[in-house]
Design a binder for these strands. Structure first.
Lengths: 203, 203
DNA sequence: GTCTATAGCCAGATAGAC
DNA sequence: GTCTATCTGGCTATAGAC
């Protein structure tokens, strides 16, 4: 419907497709709705992207390409584990507040088709734990942090940062809070999550 | 296909529907596949459950009814916060290892249709944070644990326990591990997650 | 490049025999 | 209760005019 500021048709399609696919998923999305949101005709979708599958893949790859660099930041820079956790948590939650559908979308579609990630792993920017592992083990040796498996620490960081944005309706229902209160909780987490993790591992 | 030990048709349908809906989701599921898995005809599905929507709701409610008591355990018994966290973490991860699709299914379908949870909230067994909040605040006052908002602690407990089972393909790819190694990591988490949380909050 | 019209298929639901 | 056959609608995709 709204053309916002997409210069060309191809871009307005991709933008509309992003909205529809990320909220409805591949199976729930309808080409007609994407066409309507892009303000063009259904036939144009096929003219530019050949098929629903290919349009979906374009959206998915874009979404993943936004997420991956955020992770690489925590995995591959040279700051201390503590600084990494603080920076990552703050940056990442800010990032997701701007793209709230993104993590649930990626997770849902990977669960639907796990082999999809094999293609992504080919890319050289694909996140990798090797450097992070060495650093964790080094800081344990230096008695800077308590013993912990790097994989478990990594899972914990991911979980604490991402989960609330994936399970939003569940959390709002259990905590019995409205949208405004939920958003405030998420803002607070920018610092609270980092403190929580660091409290747990620092000596 | 396999009838396992479903006495009657209705049950074998529900069981087949559970498998298909939980792995494909509402939109991706096909009535034909459910019929095949139940070893009966497509028309029978409608005879017993009238529509795809109603069959789905039966599956969803069953799934949620399995999950809720697990949460109520941590929220409403009288043990200390520390004991609750240890018990919950161990029990919950054991539970999900037996039902690996369950959390992703519930979260995905609630994201697809968030208003669905309003109906669930009517049920008297629906998890509620009030008692847990009071207990957290009391233990903070008694200097047993560090100051933390009960909602944030609750989110953290949920996140650390549930997230890896929701984002399994992502974690396996990032950590570059196979299925066997992943399962071992999850078993280890039965104790590691509780230690991680308690380390963070205890004084 | 953009549109209308329609082909072709597939899935959910129903009718009706047994 | 269980089946086969079929209706009906909706969806992706394409043909073809402009």
């Amino acid at each position: 419907m709204a053309k916002t500021k997409d210069e060309n048709t191809e871009n307005s399609i991709l933008n509309a497709a992003k909205n529809v696919f990320q909220s409805k998923g591949m199976d729930g999305a309808r080409m007609q709705e994407i066409a309507d949101k892009a303000g063009i005709n259904k036939a144009m979708l096929h003219y530019y992207y050949r098929s629903k599958q290919l349009l979906f893949e374009a959206v998915f790859k874009n979404a993943f390409a936004l997420l991956a660099p955020q992770l690489n930041k925590v995995l591959n820079d040279d700051s201390s584990i503590e600084d990494k956790i603080r920076n990552f948590t703050s940056n990442y939650i800010s990032f997701i507040i701007k793209h709230p559908y993104l993590p649930a979308f990626i997770i849902q579609e990977l669960n639907r088709n796990p082999s999809f990630i094999l293609k992504l792993k080919q890319n050289k920017g694909f996140p990798n734990l090797e450097k992070f592992k060495k650093q964790v083990n080094l800081e344990i040796e230096q008695k800077l942090i308590k013993p912990i498996h790097a994989e478990q620490l990594f899972i914990n960081i991911m979980a604490l940062n991402i989960f609330p944005f994936v399970a939003t309706p569940l959390i709002k229902a259990f905590a019995n809070i409205n949208d405004k209160a939920f958003k405030q909780l998420m803002k607070d987490r920018k610092e609270e999550v980092a403190d929580f993790i660091i409290n747990s591992i620092k000596i």
